[in-house]
């Protein structure tokens, strides 16, 4: 349901687009001016998302930062590969197969998915398992809205997600980096949590392909790889579903993958992170429990050993 988050902010508080486009120019001096042409590009249609004030205290990363530094291995393992290659992905038409323990299974077109939905802006912290982080002004709606539309049946305990697998459009999947297609999963209560959204855009514009167009999951208190991109299937199931990175290295990537500075990745510490955009001399900052969303989500895990169930 939209509008759950109240805010005292008005449209006067919104940063005008030319200003945020210019932020990088101010930061990087001359180099920013050169880059500006590529950021501005042809302006896409505004989504007109409702402002929620959620995360209004956070300073979002620039559009260039959010769209040029991505992990989307379907398009290659280099951080710049998604920006270079994701234009090959056909995002229209797009539909999501909703199946499993639901009352209304079937193929849902984007129009059907967005029917009756109010798009909201949610400014969330985003913490990658690799120790970098960003702040992203997502546009989306609560996953709970779609699940209600599909009608979750009794007995469903988990939600499984699947990314598109198109070797013709995704050069990365020709190599067995991990097992394709990319799959992810949430416990039903995590999926129904109001912070969990399906995002269809950012900066009030349609989702760039490299960020998971046309529809992706965003779960801000978990490491980034849980927020699966370019979703083609959502299944309601009774058992914990397999997840892509967990299958590859269960010791390194747990099913829950909650951001947790007290549980190190076996190969690196998770106590600190570095915000993208600080340049060559950016310092690391302490990582927050549940990525700063402890107040909202800690109750989901009451009594659970978060080291064992990492």
């Amino acid at each position: 349901m939209a509008g759950r988050y109240k805010s005292k902010l008005t449209w006067d508080d919104v940063t005008p687009k030319p200003v945020w486009l210019n932020r990088r120019q101010l930061l990087a001096g001359g180099a920013g001016a050169l880059a500006l042409g590529s950021i501005a590009g042809p302006a896409a249609a505004s989504l007109g998302a409702q402002k929620t004030g959620y995360g209004a205290d956070l300073e979002p990363n620039t559009l260039e930062e959010i769209t040029s530094y991505n992990n989307f291995y379907e398009f290659g393992t280099d951080k710049g590969d998604p920006a270079r290659n994701a234009h090959m992905l056909t995002t229209e038409p797009w539909s999501v197969e909703i199946d499993g323990m639901v009352d209304n299974p079937g193929s849902y077109s984007m129009e059907q998915i967005l029917d009756g939905v109010t798009l909201e802006e949610r400014i969330y912290r985003f913490r990658c398992v690799e120790r970098w982080s960003m702040v992203v002004p997502w546009v989306g709606f609560e996953l709970a809205d779609l699940l209600e539309k599909a009608g979750v049946q009794e007995g469903a305990k988990y939600v499984a997600f699947e990314t598109a697998l198109r070797p013709d459009e995704m050069p990365g999947v020709r190599s067995p980096i991990i097992e394709w297609p990319y799959v992810e999963g949430l416990r039903l209560d995590e999926a129904m949590h109001p912070l969990t959204i399906l995002a269809t855009g950012l900066y009030d514009e349609p989702m760039p392909n490299q960020n998971g167009a046309p529809i992706r999951l965003v779960v801000p208190w978990k490491y980034g790889y849980k927020s699966i991109k370019s979703i083609v299937r959502i299944s309601l199931v009774a058992e914990e579903p397999p997840t892509a990175w967990n299958k590859y290295a269960p010791r390194e990537y747990g099913f829950y993958s909650n951001v947790n500075p007290n549980r190190d990745h076996p190969r690196w510490s998770q106590k600190y992170e570095r915000r993208i955009g600080g340049g060559l001399f950016a310092k690391q900052e302490p990582t927050l429990m549940f990525n700063g969303y402890e107040e909202e989500v800690a109750s989901l895990y009451e009594g659970m050993d978060l080291i064992e169930f990492h």
Partner: peptide, 9 residues
Amino acid sequence: TGGLGVEPI
């Protein structure tokens, strides 16, 4: 000068 992308370190 920004030539190494948004994560130069």
